[in-house]
Amino acid sequence: MPEKGKATDMEALREALIDDILSMTEEKILAEAKEDNVDLDGNLRKTKALFDQAKKSAAKGKLKAAQAAVANNVFSNVVPMDRERFAKYDAALRTGKIGTSELTLAARNGSGLSEEDRRKLIEDMIELGIPLPDEE
């Protein structure tokens, strides 16, 4: 293990080198790299590859976090619905009337809706407690 004084000296040297590099202009950095026969194109490709890999890694991390969130909350918003009740809501949706209320244009009286949109709309009506005509 390095002594405390040596560790401090190494830290100071590291800081000085970093400050020196950061204070250099791009032209000076390129000139020194050419003097040292550094493959600029190769280093650029490697750097871009590292950034691409970091982006992919971050995206995978976000995906895993989202998957975990979904897995922990997957059944919290399930609306129980039997086929008969669904059919009644579907019929009411297609007529454009639920009880004495007219459906808004957003519902489009059930026309032009995909099956998934129709199912979600019916689930929303049940969740909101909108009664069917025979339930009022």
Score class of each variant (00 low, 15 high):
Gly129Asp: 12
Gln67Ser: 02
Glu102Asp: 13
Ala7Asn: 01
Asp39Met: 01
Leu13Pro: 01
Asp117Val: 06
Asp36Met: 12
Ala7Phe: 10
Glu11His: 13
Ser111Trp: 03
Ala49Leu: 10
Ala59Gln: 07
Gly110Met: 03
Met24Leu: 10
Val79Gln: 03
Leu128Trp: 07
Val78Gln: 02
Leu93Gln: 02
Met81Phe: 01
Leu13Met: 11
Glu84Gln: 15
Ser23Val: 12
Leu121Gly: 00
Arg14Gln: 12
Glu35Leu: 09
Leu113Ser: 05
Pro133Phe: 03
Pro131Leu: 02
Glu135Ser: 09
Ala31Gly: 06
Arg83Met: 07
Phe51Asn: 06
Lys97Ile: 04
Asn43Arg: 15
Lys28His: 09
Leu132Phe: 04
Ala12Pro: 03
Leu113Phe: 11
Ala7Pro: 02
Ala69His: 14
Asn77Pro: 00
Arg94Glu: 05
Ala12His: 09
Ala68Met: 07
Ile98Asn: 05
Asp36Ala: 14
Asn37Phe: 10
Asn73Arg: 12
Ser76Glu: 14
Gly42Glu: 04
Leu121His: 02
Thr47Ser: 05
Gly112Ser: 03
Asp82Arg: 04
Leu44Tyr: 14
Pro2Met: 09
Ser111Thr: 12
Pro80Leu: 07
Ala59Pro: 00
Ala107Pro: 01
Gly42Trp: 02
Arg119Lys: 14
Met1Asn: 12
Glu115Ser: 08
Leu93Met: 06
Arg45Glu: 15
Val79Arg: 09
Asp52Phe: 14
Leu132Arg: 04
Gly129Pro: 03
Glu123Gly: 00
Ile98His: 00
Met10Trp: 09
Asp52Met: 12
Met81Glu: 07
Val70Leu: 13
Gly5Lys: 14
Ile98Ala: 00
Ile126Gln: 02
Leu17Cys: 09
Glu136Trp: 07
Leu121Cys: 06
Asn37Ile: 09
Ser57Gln: 13
Asp90Met: 03
Ala91Lys: 15
Arg94Lys: 14
Ala16Trp: 08
Lys64Leu: 04
Lys56Ala: 06
Ile122Gln: 01
Glu84Tyr: 13
Ser57Met: 05
Lys6His: 10
Glu102His: 13
Asp124Glu: 09
Glu116Arg: 14
Val78Ala: 03
Asp82Phe: 08
Leu128Glu: 12
Ala91Phe: 11
Gly42Thr: 06
Glu135Arg: 05
Leu44Gln: 10
